[in-house]
Design a protein around this nucleic acid. Sequence first.
DNA 1: AATATTTGGTTTATATTATAAACTTATTTA
DNA 2: TAAATAAGTTTATAATATAAACCAAATATT
Lengths: 95, 95
Amino acid sequence: MFKALDPLLHNQLRLSIMSILISVESAEFSFLLEKTGATRGNLSVQINKLKEAGYITVKKSFRDNYPLTTCKIATTGIDAFEDYVDALQDYLNTT
Amino acid sequence: MFKALDPLLHNQLRLSIMSILISVESAEFSFLLEKTGATRGNLSVQINKLKEAGYITVKKSFRDNYPLTTCKIATTGIDAFEDYVDALQDYLNTT
DNA sequence: AATATTTGGTTTATATTATAAACTTATTTA
DNA sequence: TAAATAAGTTTATAATATAAACCAAATATT
């Protein structure tokens, strides 16, 4: 009856990140920071978990001499996100 | 932008329980056990958390000499569930 | 030219949470 | 009367989330 909810996506911050990334071409660390309201530490950790899972790709570069972390959703991530949204319907269905 | 997700509801098993309870008059422990596929220990713990929060009421009685635990959603629980579903929309909105 | 502050993160220590295994108490069956 | 089953509860452990502390480089301040 209830499909399993991908534990990686079933977390507020990671879901926020994915939700943002699914609707933009790419997003910088500071953009995600502002949009999610997370702390830098937490954001860093969760970005890495999503990256380890292959849900997003992370590019590290420099801009104006400062580090710049850019995130982009991967195909695997899009699929996982869609599956998650799909699975959730069973739970929310207030008929 | 992203509303907070009630941590009590943002858990697969507890959300399953609430999802079931919102659509029935009441449900027995064994019914929830079967529908959720949880272990008895886990189900017991999560039912109690929902009860402590005032999201559900739990009635303990006996039937055929055996203990019978019956759960029913409370008004507070209905409200919380609706708020949760509402908050989630911001995250899922694939527009 | 030192020193302090800011930027843009990462590491890690701690607290919280989730979960299953072990336990309990009563009942029925062999 | 011993073993198995029913219906849960308790609790030990593992996993997770989170913020505080840290770090390196750049810029600003005295």
